[in-house]
Design a protein around this nucleic acid. Structure first.
Lengths: 103, 103
DNA sequence: GCGACATACATCGTAACACGAGGTAATAAC
DNA sequence: GTTATTACCTCGTGTTACGATGTATGTCGC
């Protein structure tokens, strides 16, 4: 899919991936893969950004000798998803503008 | 609307705005305004980009003492719109991923 | 005639961003 | 002991949207 098209979806997608259950980087990529592929470097950038924006919180857990950083969504993160749903109506309107057949 | 979300829509939107009838910068902005607002600097950047990508062609016309650069869509531009329609199915799938309610 | 506004184009600098390439380190399988 | 998998991170680069700014003409009110 077109990179530019992905941009607006990525942040919200990551938030959606942890909304129902706390998750960590490696697993988020796997969960999202059927819908939207993203590289590790991209994901970790996004996670850092969302953390700075306080849309998620981190707690590190040791799991079989390796570190895992679990991410938990905050109310601000949930609100971000809600805002996306509002934007969606606008996107659908734009879609109709693009696909309309006049001539 | 979220800037990132606009990004993937902008190019295709501009192509759609000239698809049925050749148009020029100033008018494109006005036509698109109800759907998607964009500044002049953004539009002219987009037009230049689409021209370089040979998705549209320019012909300059003098109109009441002022220059007007009319843009005409090429087959590659039409194809770009068709590709967007394909991408749309993916976007809808992502939307469902984001808005699903599991818990 | 002159100021304000609309029409119509263009450029520059900046900040945000996705991603490839590369790095570290532990466990598991063979 | 080498390869694969899990799990994290950073740096550099190219693309991009947009505000600020500039140029120039036409129109309308006063």
């Amino acid at each position: 899919m077109d990179i530019q098209l992905k941009r607006g979806l990525l942040d919200v997608c990551v938030l959606a991936a942890i909304k129902n259950e706390d998750s960590y980087g490696y697993r988020i990529i796997k969960d999202m893969k059927p819908y939207l592929e993203l590289s590790e470097s991209t994901l970790y950038t996004i996670l850092k950004r969302l953390e700075t924006a306080r849309m998620l919180e981190v707690h590190t857990v040791e799991h079989e000798g390796r570190l895992r950083k679990y991410y938990h969504i905050t109310p601000a993160g949930v609100q971000r998803i809600e805002e996306f749903k509002t934007d969606w109506e606008e996107i659908r309107s734009i879609y109709r503008f693009i696909t309309r057949e006049e001539a």
